[in-house]
Amino acid sequence: MGIILVDLMLFGFLVLTALAIMRLTNLFAVTMLAGLFSLLAAGLFVTMDAVDVAFTEAAVGAGISTVLMLSALALTARNEKPFVIVSRRMAVPLICCLVTGAALIYGTLDMPAFGDPDAPVHTHVGGEYITRVIPDTGVPNIVTAVLASYRGYDTLGETTVIFVAAIAVLLLIGFPRSATRRRDEDGSE
């Protein structure tokens, strides 16, 4: 029961943070709140036994991504353009989200209950990892074992993704912009 309360509270904060992010136009504040959101999410992950994920989320969401966001803001703008409330502009995305949400909720109706140990998720492959991780690898952190060995290939992919991202960022902004800028602005405006 306590867990539920903590959960609910975290969710409440998350929703509030998200709403605040939505409302605020100061991008610095938004960035900070986004970091906060990640932290809260990390907390939630902890309550759901995903310590590794929580760790990562905290490091990435609250750490690196905030830093990157700030550096980007330094190069772009501090404030969002004041948000004009036009009902149509509001309504259409809202309806989109409601429909998508409705679809998702409809999808959850047949899901196994939260935490149900008999859910197929736990009985099939997931359970198997728990039983065979020690004999197979001797690594107690199942997540690490799965990550690096059973699904090591995914992690190779993951590393590649981050590599690609770095390459891409370097390709885009990795070099002094003087040359680039001149070209970008050729013949425009």
Partner: peptide, 19 residues
């Protein structure tokens, strides 16, 4: 970009209706 999500929503809506 938003307008495309509108289409996604419409598609999902129809799917939902179908379901």
């Amino acid at each position: 970009t938003g307008s495309m999500v509108l289409w996604i929503a419409i598609l999902l809506g129809i799917t939902l209706g179908l379901a």
